[in-house]
Nucleic acid binder design. Structure first.
Length: 246
DNA sequence: AATCATCGCAACCGCGAGCCC
DNA sequence: AGGGCTCGCGGTTGCGATGAT
């Protein structure tokens, strides 16, 4: 337990800049005051809490305490397997957008999901400790990979347009003898370390699933697929799509 | 029993977006 | 237009609980 944090300005009742906000774990009495404040005034205007209740907590701290712990609609207990699946699915789609993910899990907070992810998934994926863990990770990988494949299929339509655009570019420049390198050059501009095989996926759609010996790399790479639904025709979207293979 | 390592979670921090004056 | 304020978000830290040695 400690006290710290210089206040930014006057908050009323003689509290001046040299006063400090209370930090650290909340007491039952502080919780009671905050709950009473929300009951009377509703959520929001968190910077008024200190002035109206006498709590020596800043607005940020009050909001966080309410949102993550005191809200009556919070669900307690462990994350269920169903919720875990949803988290996996949505993280594959949204990346670390915890608040977005939390909106699909009533009663769960972004903080809770973020903590759960960090302790249960990211670590396990990086260094599985035994065969069972590896098997579980393999299943997770396949689920996620299947999901990514679906997204890739959607994007293949956009890739067709991408190829058409390049073809038009080539047609317009076919009087140059070295034009056959253009596609690779364009890809190299986007993803400099792309191998020939990886480039084939992007340029020709000839994609082969990496073998299991590269699973860990693939799995790790998938954490970068945050924006896989981005526009394929722009550079950012393309980069996100090919990032795990770069 | 003692010590050390790891886990799980609450809370803090910095930053950016949106709003209002 | 822009400066200040409030709020929300994602990353990180601190620390008690638990497990391993």
């Amino acid at each position: 337990m400690y006290w710290g944090g210089v206040m930014a300005g006057q908050i009323g009742h003689g509290m001046m800049e040299e006063d400090v906000w209370r930090k650290g774990p909340w007491t039952a009495e502080e919780d009671r005051l905050l709950i009473e404040y929300v009951r009377l005034h509703g959520e929001g205007r968190w910077n008024s809490v200190a002035r109206l209740t006498g709590l020596k907590r800043n607005g940020k701290s009050c909001r966080l305490r309410w949102v993550n712990y005191l809200r009556p609609d919070l669900k307690r207990g462990q994350i269920t397997p169903q919720e875990e699946n949803i988290i996996l699915e949505l993280h594959a789609r949204w990346g670390n957008r915890w608040s977005t993910i939390a909106r699909s899990l009533p009663g769960r907070t972004d903080n809770e999901i973020k903590n759960y992810w960090r302790t249960h998934f990211k670590k396990k994926a990086k260094r599985p400790s035994d065969a069972a863990e590896k098997a579980k990770n393999r299943i997770m990988r396949k689920q996620l990979f299947h999901h990514q494949q679906q997204l890739l299929n959607q994007q293949q339509q956009q890739q067709l347009q991408f190829n058409l655009d390049i073809s038009k570019f080539e047609e317009n420049n076919n009087r140059f003898p070295y034009i056959s390198q253009t596609r690779q050059e364009m890809l190299n501009n986007i993803c400099p370390n792309t191998t020939e095989e990886q480039g084939n996926f992007m340029l020709n759609g000839n994609y082969s699933v990496p073998d299991s010996s590269t699973d860990e790399n693939l799995w790790d790479g998938m954490w970068n697929l945050d924006d896989v639904q981005g526009n394929f025709s722009n550079k950012t979207g393309l980069y996100n799509l090919v990032a795990p293979y770069c």
